[in-house]
Each structure stands twice: as C-alpha cells, then as structure tokens.
C-alpha cells in the first residue's frame, strides 16, 4: 500500500476511534491499537507509539475545557502524577524487554476489564463526611460546584490510590492507552472523590503520563511519522466531534455497543498472540 492510500484510511479509522472514545468516555487508545494491529498489520510497538501520541492530543484537548469548570483538583493531580509518571517510565522500560505477543495478551485483559466496567458503571455512594488526617496534611481536601452550591469533599486512602496510580502509569506506557479506567478506579473507589472530580482530574493527568512514555518511545524509534500523523489528527478531530455530539445522544446503548466491539478486538488480539501470528 502506498503512503497516499494508507494515510487517509488510517485517518478515517482514527477519527472513528476518537469519536467513539470521547462519546463513551473510554478513550480512543483501546480502539486505535487493535485497529492498527489487526486491520493494518502494524507491529504492536509502532501501534503503541502512534496511539500514545493520539492519547496526548485528545487528553490535552479535552482537559482544557475541564480546568475552566473548576472540577479538577490540581494538587491531587500533581501528587498522583508522581506515581503515574514514575509508573510510565517503568512501563516504557519494560516494553523494551516484553515480546509483542505478551503485550497483546496484557492489552486484551486490560481492555476486557475496561469494557466490563463500561457495562456496569459503579453506583454512586455517599461521600465521606470527615477529613482523613493524612489527606489533610497533604492539603488534598477540596470543593466542587454541585446542585447550585459549592460542596466540600475529603479524599481517603491516599497511599493506596498512589499505588494503583503507579500501575495505571505502567499500563498506559506498556499498552499505549490512557488507562483512564484504572485512574478513575483509584480516585473514585479508593480515594472516594466525587465522580466528576475523579474523571476530570484523571483526564488532566493522562496527557502528562503519556508525555513521559512518548518521550522514551520517540528516542527508541517507536514513533513512526507516517502513522503518528494520521492517527493523532484523526483521533483529535474525532474527539472534538464527540464532545460536540455528547449532549445530544443516549450514551447507554452506545457504551454497550462500544464495549462489545472492543471486547471482540481484545479477544482477537489475544488469539493472534496465542497462535503465533504476531
């Protein structure tokens, strides 16, 4: 295939991935990597490099809107970025010694888990009413706009959140995804942040995490401009369109369809890896 033919096809495919990723809140990376590997036969190392570039672009694009809204807790983001960035450097280092098929199998497991949590969103729980001493020491208590007023919240289990964030960073680097689901898991379930705060803070952190591993991959020659250009531009355009469409669409059905599609892709990735066709 010539570059003139491949570029527009990859561009359109990534546009669709970015669009669906923004609509469902799962991010484009979980579609872009299998799209490149399964449909275009791209080596998984190049696919991960290109996908990470798209992850930075879409995360920076959407985070810009949220910081303005006052949901993002910059202190929590910065503290946990120590964990995700350190994890990302470890993941990028590990990727060098991990064979492609092994990466594909880990990818499949993480994406299946992501799809499963998309199908069963966590029920809202009452937030903790009392401050946690350690979180207070770290000045992490915050407030956010809710029901026409300002509501305070008190994060808990900060060390546990930090540990899970280390693995979120490593998975993001190793698999070329934003791993927003793991980040939300740490902040929503463990640290008990309000859902809106955990999702926007997670989005704010994804770009920084991906920048760390993309830097390593650039040096290692895993970022191929012929792929990174259409993938990043397509995903960016798709996520902008997705953000525009979001208020006008029923996301429940869409999440189910998306979860099924990425699950099929995940199983195919694992099958291809297990049968030695990778």
């Amino acid at each position: 295939m010539t570059a003139l033919v491949l570029t527009p096809i990859v561009l359109v495919g990534s546009l669709g991935a970015g669009f669906l990723g923004a609509l469902t809140g799962l991010g484009g990376g979980v579609v872009i990597v299998p799209l490149l590997v399964l449909v275009f036969g791209v080596d998984i190392h190049y696919a991960i490099g290109a996908s990470l570039v798209a992850v930075i672009a879409t995360s920076s694009g959407s985070a810009a809107a949220y910081v303005r809204d006052g949901y993002t807790n910059v202190r929590i983001a910065m503290l946990l970025e120590v964990a995700t960035v350190a994890g990302a450097l470890c993941g990028a280092w590990l990727a060098r010694y991990t064979p492609g098929p092994t990466i594909a199998v880990i990818f499949g497991i993480v994406v299946l888990y992501t799809a499963l949590s998309a199908l069963r969103p966590p029920a809202p729980r009452p937030l903790d009413e009392r401050p946690d001493p350690f979180a207070t020491l770290l000045k992490l208590n915050g407030s956010y706009p809710a029901d026409g007023g300002i509501k305070r919240y008190y994060p808990h289990r900060v060390p546990w959140g930090f540990l899970v964030m280390l693995s979120a960073g490593a998975l993001s680097a190793l698999l070329g995804i934003g791993s927003g689901i793991v980040k939300v898991l740490a902040m929503d379930r463990l640290m008990r942040l309000p859902f809106k705060v955990s999702t926007t803070t997670s989005n704010f952190m994804i770009g920084v995490t991906a920048a760390a591993s993309a830097g390593v991959y650039l040096h290692r020659g895993q970022i191929e401009p012929g792929l990174a250009m259409p993938v990043a531009l397509g995903a960016l355009g798709g996520s902008f369109l997705g953000a525009r469409t979001l208020p006008r669409i029923k996301t429940k059905t869409l999440r189910i369809v998306f979860a099924v599609v990425v699950s099929v892709a995940a199983v195919q990735m694992m099958y291809k890896a297990a049968t030695g066709k990778m």
């Binding site: 570039v53 930075i56 920076s60 991906a210 920048a211 993309a214 650039l218 970022i223 250009m229 990043a232």
Partner: peptide
C-alpha cells in the same frame, strides 16, 4: 511530523 509530536509532548510539560 516528528516536530509536531515534540510540541504535543511539550504541551503537558509546560502545563
């Protein structure tokens, strides 16, 4: 194109 990747990586760092 690689320069555009560098700008993208720099963006969160500047942030």
């Amino acid at each position: 194109v690689q320069a555009s990747v560098l700008i993208l990586i720099a963006t969160p760092i500047i942030r």
